[in-house]
Amino acid sequence: MSLAVDLVMVLLILTAAVWTILARDRRDAVIAFIVLGLLLSLVWMRLLAVDVALTEAAVGGGATGLVLLRACARLLPVEADGALPGLRLQVAVGVLCAVVGACLAAVILSPPEPAPSLAPAVAAHMEDVGLKNPVTVVLLAYRALDTLLEKVVLVLGLIGVWALAPDLFWGGRPASLRAAVPSGTLTFLARVLPPIGVLIGIYLVWNGADHPGGTFQGGTVLAAMWLLVMMADLGDPPETRALRLRRLVAVGPALFIAVGLAGFGMADGFLSYPPGYAKPIIVAVEVALALSIAVILGLMVAGPAAKEPDQ
């Protein structure tokens, strides 16, 4: 019974995936990709990885879909997709891909016995950190370096997007995200939803210490609300030269590094937390990170400066 449901799920996923590749119109492909994101979020739920399911729901259903659909809207007048190349090449590449897939499938079908797991090790030291959500403990204690570097990746990604601005526009506002036709319903939604969304975002960040959720999920929700306001034309993207904005971007990673370095004096070294104070410190870092993530994601979607800075 249960496996039959999983089988249905897999079929739906593969349908969406194949359509993502084969759809002729690029917007159809993006819609199929959004569908795939929703389905994958359910799969992560099925695999009992609720933190990941939340991330996938926020990113796959929200942020990535928005980026891609916006690209479609701006691409349409400019350039058409080419069709897939000739059949012979398709077959050759198809065979290659099938071989890769088959190799991967063979690996999956011969799992090691017993399956290796770090879960016991994670559990053994959770007390030391004082948080109840194991994923957050991994992200902010055991593998904090990865999480820190990943935030640096985000900042560099933002710089990379900004770098695409023409020289003349440097420091100015990104292109407006306004929807094509101003619509009363959208304005209404953009007035009602953000307060609730902000609340949910904060809740996800706060909850992340002990329950599924966390900085990235919360930050993405906050970013989505900001983007909604921008799309409903209730606020334009800010000028990219504004130092206040820049500091919001930097505050999360900077605080994380500062806390990490403070570990040299107050605890066992870089990115270790003083015993007993780990939880408040981690929550503080998470709040700052969520703020930075929200601003970075919003700005990345908004794109490079497209107007001269105001005088």
Binding site: D51, T55, L118, V122, L139
Partner: peptide, 8 residues
């Protein structure tokens, strides 16, 4: 939880 954190 370790691979879950990596996926995030």
């Amino acid at each position: 939880p370790v691979p879950q954190a990596m996926v995030i």
